[in-house]
Amino acid sequence: MTIDWYFILEKLILISGVLALSLIVAMYSTWGERKVAAVIQDRRGPNRAGPLGLLQPLADGGKLFFKEEIIPASSHRFLFILGPSLAMLVACMTSAVIPWGDTLVIAGQEISLQVADINIGILYIFGVVSLGVYGIMLGGWASNNKYSLLASVRAASQIISYELAMGLSLIALLMLTGSLSLKDIVEQQRHGLWNVVYQPLGFLIFLVCAFAECNRTPFDLPEAENELNGGYHLEYSSMKLGFYLFAEYINMFVSSALMASLYFGGYSFPGMDSLGLPHNVVTILGFLALFLKILVFLFLFMWVRWTIPRFRYDQLMRLGWNVMIPLALLNMLITGAIVLFRQG
């Protein structure tokens, strides 16, 4: 069995590229978050560090690095360190199956802009997302603080509740596409209409669940700063806190990319194939189109955060179990009936 070094090199470059991209986007999401918050609240936002405050994320990161590392004496030391690392790792893992673009042809070699085109792409994402809660749970428990513990309990039940509705809303989509590979789903939308046209309700459920899975307002109960003092990352300082905050933004970025790929055509854009441009140019334009869609979703995440107040915990659970899951089931039934009707 020979090892294809060229293949490994290609994938390594792609993986580092995707990782660097997610980290940079996450970095600038913090800047974007503050800017969006500011303009929505009639303020100016960060504008001192560099032009338009663009160096602010670097300043923030530098500050986090130089802060004192505090590990509480009564904490479970190993798990305390494992928590943020796990959160970061899981957040980065999801980006592996997202098709960032079509293929690039360099020197006769076709290079796919997707780290791994596995035929169970969506299930892989589900698996990884369901692991995402461990970072929060372990961190919250290992801190040995009642607020952190409450936060981790909240996080666990919230994420499990909304994962169900998310999965059910996706099943309806999968009935239409008939494939679990994200690349196939995007390619289908390239030649037809975007899936959001067929699945408006499913998209809405998916969107709400994505907010809940990313712990974003109005579902940010695990880190509710005014009742739990920051929740699961209450005892964290320095870069371990940074990891938690960063993981949230990477999660946001990846779920934006996922929503864009699943429901809004991913890297395809209308009139993509009739431009008559070289293949590589079209691919790069497609990547930019995907990026634009991601930015729109990121803005939506922030816009909602600065508009809607947090849910109460019982409201959150009622919404998840009494509204989202029945709606998702209904959506699934209707979609199934229509698919069956059109086949038969």
Binding site: G127, W141, A156, I160
Partner: peptide, 8 residues
């Protein structure tokens, strides 16, 4: 993803 989270 699910059962072990509940265990924990």
């Amino acid at each position: 993803g699910a059962i072990m989270v509940l265990f924990l």
